[in-house]
Every structure is written in C-alpha cells, then in structure tokens.
C-alpha cells in the first residue's frame, strides 16, 4: 500500500504528520517512510536511526565528443530546451536545462553525444526500529530539477520493499510537477491543511489536482481551533472526508521545533493518528 502525504501550502504540518504517523504505524506494521521533499528534506530531523545505505544518484546528460563530432548542427536543432549551444567549432551542453530526453544523443549522425551520468543528489536509508525504515533523498544545491531524483527514489522503494510494507511518502509542498510525480502512483493521498484563508486557498488547489489525477484522498486539519470554519464547510460541501483534527497547541509547536515526535507525548495526537490509520486501512471509495 502506498500513501502520500501532501499539502498545497508549506508549513502546515506535513512532515510532522509523516514522521509521527510512520512511527505510530510501526508499532504494529512494517513501514517505510520516504522523504520525497528532495529540495528541503526534513523528516530525518525527527527520526533517528542507523544509516544502512548511502548512494549518490545520477541523471543522464549528453557529453560532447570533440574527436568524432562533424558539427552537423543536429543536436542544437532537436533540443527543445535550448540546452545545447554551438560556439564556433565547439558544442556546449548546459546540464541544468537538460531534461534527459536522449534526442540529441540518439539523433546525432556521428554518435558524438553519448549520455553520461551526472551527480544530482544523495539517497540515504536508515533503520529506525525493527519495523520502520526511513529513506531520504536530497537534491544537491544548484540542481534545479527535483523530478528525476523523485522518480529514482520511487523506483528504489518499489524495488526494495514488498507489498506487506506500508509505504508512506512525504511529498513536497505545492501542486506542480514534483507533487504530481510523488502522488500519481499512490493508492491514497492524505492532504494536510490549517483552517485559515491561506490553508483553504491552497487546499482547494491540491484537491482539484488530486481530482484531476483521480486519486482517493482525505483531509487532516492541523492547528484546529485557529482561524475559522471555512475549511470544514468546504470539505462538507464537496463531500471530502475530514479524517482527523490536530488541535492548535503551543506545546506541539515547541516539541516540533526541537525535533521531537509528538504522538508519544500528547495523547490527543495519538487518538487522531488512530483515525488516520483507520482511513488508510478502509476500503477506498474513489473520489
């Protein structure tokens, strides 16, 4: 089973939910949590364990072979991303613009642009306890494309964990390409928001995105008690499940700030996680 935790707006408690939920579920199930917020991976601050694997991850970029190049100009012509320029007798590849489509490489008449690996980030695997594994991918500073690293991390999880393990994905914030990459193959999506105008506005965008992707999803309200009832009214009107409500509590914010898990210290949070667990194991109704 694959579950993604997402939020339109950043800072609504996505990582708090992902880390606490994975630790809570691991009391009774085998769980792997993958932090796919590769630009700003934070789950690892809350889950401490032994590093069992560390791998550099690469994306494929064409590399110019000066000796065989006939300067046909084909590479420049076929690149839709303007990632290749020709400066007189020299070809220059701009790795940041390259989307690894292979067109220049495979259409080059003299095969002078072989695809070669270029480092984009690091994947690490930690054993937190007998039931809980944590996988984190971290994009190198200066790398602009998150999607290739997310795709590789997804493949890594598919390859290394079988169907008896619950797979949780901590998604990046927002609703654009990286989020779609994380959520497009999961069984259910848990959306977390706060009951404020910003929270509602960004919730609507991610809800519409999930409907576009035809996903089964439910909503967790964090910092319940602040703001107003508009998020609840919206969910009721749209027939969206409100799975759980985590109360606004300065104590929770303080625990979080120091990198502590919360559910084992605040009983009310454990009760809410119990509800999230029932949602995960419920039969999907489809949205």
């Amino acid at each position: 089973m694959k579950i993604a935790i997402a939020s339109g707006k950043g800072g609504t408690g996505k990582t708090t939910l992902a880390t606490n939920l994975s630790a809570f579920l691991s009391e009774s199930e085998k769980v792997v949590l993958a932090d796919l917020d590769v630009e700003e991976p934070n789950s690892g601050l809350f889950l401490k364990g032994d590093l069992v694997l560390e791998e550099v991850r690469y994306k494929m970029i064409p590399k110019w072979n000066e000796d065989t190049c006939t300067l046909s100009g084909k590479c420049r012509e076929v690149c839709n991303f303007n990632a290749i320029v020709q400066l007189g007798p020299r070809i220059l590849v701009l790795p940041e613009l390259c989307h690894s489509c292979y067109a220049c490489s495979e259409l080059c008449p003299s095969s002078s642009l072989p695809m070669t690996p270029q480092r984009m980030g690091v994947l690490k695997e930690y054993k937190i306890n007998d039931n809980l594994t944590f996988v984190e991918s971290r994009l190198d500073i200066g790398q602009e494309q998150a999607v290739p690293l997310i795709m590789q991390t997804n493949d890594f999880i598919d390859l290394n964990f079988d169907n008896t393990t619950i797979k949780l994905f901590d998604s990046p914030p927002g609703a654009s390409c990286p989020v779609i990459e994380v959520t497009k193959d999961v069984d259910k999506v848990i959306l977390i928001t706060e009951p404020t105008p910003f929270g509602l506005h960004d919730l609507i965008i991610i809800v519409e995105t999930m409907r576009e992707l035809k996903k089964d999803f439910g909503v967790v309200i964090n910092r319940y008690g602040v703001g107003n009832d508009d998020v609840i009214d919206y969910c009721n009107r749209e027939g969206i499940d409100i799975i759980a409500k985590i109360s606004n509590d300065r104590h929770i914010a303080e625990l979080y700030s120091g990198g502590d898990l919360i559910y084992d210290k605040v009983p009310a949070v454990r009760d809410e996680l119990e509800r999230v667990k029932s949602y995960i194991f419920s039969e999907g109704e489809g949205m």
């Binding site: 420049r76 839709n80 991303f81 303007n82 990632a83 320029v85 020709q86 400066l87 007189g88 701009l94 940041e96 613009l97």
Partner: peptide
C-alpha cells in the same frame, strides 16, 4: 521559448560575433 531563453540569445549573440555587449540586468547563470 519555455526553457533556456538565455542560452538561445547567447547563441545568437555568439553568431553576431561582437566585441562588447551592453545590457541592463546582466545574463542569467546559463
């Protein structure tokens, strides 16, 4: 152009073979 406007214009600039470029903000990273 959705991507790489800077590189495309750079290519054009190169083809024009100037000694000096005068502009406003300066070229981006690529």
């Amino acid at each position: 152009e959705a991507h790489g406007a800077g590189t495309k214009t750079s290519q054009r600039l190169f083809d024009l073979n100037p000694d000096v470029l005068i502009t406003g903000n300066g070229p981006g990273g690529n």
